[in-house]
Amino acid sequence: MTSELIYICAGSGLVGLAFYRLATCRDMLLRVLSLNVLAVGIAILFLASARNAGMTDAVPQAFILTGIVVLVAVTAALLALAEQIDSQRDE
């Protein structure tokens, strides 16, 4: 159980860090990065809590797998929008 506790701490640390950066930073790229870190932190938390007696639950694993793929699509869409906003600002 102790090693799960270690990863729970790491996951919640990532969530806190990403939250802090999202709230204080104005740079678009760093905001998208923070969003990714937030999602990764939640993934670790989810999987660490899904683990008991040496086995990891398959249903949360499938959720997180889905989440990772959706996250990359969201990242691409956000970056495309951010590029568009920046180029509009130029004109």
Binding site: V32, L33, I68, V72, D86
Partner: peptide, 29 residues
């Protein structure tokens, strides 16, 4: 944590492709 399926996806997508995407946009933003 005993989730190798997710680890493979995270290594391939989270580290590899997201990194490339961010690099693509890094100089445009």
């Amino acid at each position: 944590l005993g989730a190798p399926d997710v680890a493979l996806a995270e290594a391939a997508i989270g580290a590899g492709l997201t990194g490339a995407l961010l690099l693509r946009s890094a100089w445009r933003l």
